[in-house]
Design a protein around this nucleic acid. Structure first.
Lengths: 215, 215
DNA sequence: CCTGTTCGTGACCATCTGGTCAAACAACAA
DNA sequence: TTGTTGTTTGACCAGATGGTCACGAACAGG
């Protein structure tokens, strides 16, 4: 690693913080569109409004920028699922999770595409996180969902695939935004339509098989 | 265009056909993983087992290879939706469409990723098709679905978003394959599990509000 | 004011990249 | 054999790309 014990971020000057943030923002723009290999340092520097040597004063290499971006991303990316409360109402908890994920797709589409790009390339830089933290978190929440299903409070569906379906449906509106807009044509607000649609979809899907009559 | 009236493909020699196919296959491998800008001609040539100049004897440029690949892809890509039969049983027709799309995700994951990469980059090379053929086809089939819904034969859902949900859920298993496998862990067959899950999902989702009791 | 540290830049470099070209090679018919 | 056509290659090129470096500008703190 590169950071020392007392946290490298803490002792950064104002100008350091500002420029590092501008660089990360520019890099997010470029990496999310062209992937790691398709992005160029010059392009990131220009987007950030800095010269290339100046940019490389703040980050040692293209790799280093990408790593910083990915590290930052993975934290925010796991947060919505983390917030799923085993104590809450099952259907409302899951619907709230869907809404949070859709909000993220709307508000942070570049982050979503950065992640998508990374996965498409075989996830070389985040495989460890996927198999580690992410898998652990999903397994944990899947157990919660399975418990809800056993208790008959939601439909009995394979929890992992239920979570996948939430990821797929919400991220689709960020990652495939241009396709969605091209197909819908003008005069549509994809995200607000998606919100209503996904709410109905999961409400219907999660409803237990027979609420009143026994088996 | 580059082709003459009597179809350029027809008068190609055996060796031409073979090498062009090898190149397109190699290019699919590389483009689908790294996107257009991230892929290099050398890499494609090496994967195809040819020298770079030899490869450029068959295709005028990197662009030309990509165009050929995309053109070929868009045909096969629209086929499954095309096959949706307005005269068939609504639920079974839609479920068959889901199955066809999932089969494509399983059998042609590289094509799916090539498409995903293109969309992520803003679809610069296929925007016209999206707004033209694709939109027309989707609008057409959406009308069919809307008619089924009005007739009470399936649930009344926004047809465009229903189609999006099919795309999102099926392509997710191709495009995010490494994530799915990382989270599921070993000992799983993502696609066969997905087939069962998506069948249940859409069966439940498409069921009309009140199957027995009249309106 | 001076001085040490942080910040910024033009010039530069090795390597990679897409692409060209003349020449060599193979296939095959006359 | 020879000519013709289709195929393959080594050598090459201009521009892009990731990255370095010596040096100057800006800005502390004293």
């Amino acid at each position: 690693m590169e950071d020392d014990a007392p946290s490298a971020a803490a002792r950064r000057s104002r100008i350091q913080k500002r420029n590092r943030q501008m660089i990360l923002d520019a890099a997010l723009e470029v990496f999310s569109q062209f992937g790691f290999r398709g992005a160029t340092v010059d392009q990131i520097a220009e987007t950030a409004g800095l010269s290339k040597p100046n940019l490389l004063y703040y980050f040692a290499s293209k790799e280093a920028i990408h790593r910083a971006l990915i590290d930052q991303l993975m934290q925010t990316w796991l947060a919505p699922l983390h917030a799923l409360d085993p104590g809450g109402d099952p259907v409302e908890e899951l619907l709230a999770y869907v809404r949070r994920k859709l909000d993220m797709a709307r508000d942070f589409p570049r982050e979503s595409r950065l992640f998508a790009n990374e996965i498409l390339q075989g996830a070389p830089r985040i495989m460890a996180v996927l198999q580690g933290d992410l898998k652990a978190l999903v397994d944990d929440k899947a157990a919660v969902i399975a418990a809800w299903a056993r208790a008959g409070r939601i439909a009995d569906l394979p929890p992992h695939h239920l979570i996948f379906s939430i990821w797929a449906l919400t991220q689709h509106y960020a990652d495939f935004d241009v396709q969605v807009r091209a197909v819908l044509g003008p005069g549509h607000d994809p995200f607000s339509e998606a919100e209503a649609f996904l709410d109905r979809l999961f409400r219907k899907l999660l409803a237990p098989a027979e609420p009143a009559s026994g088996r």
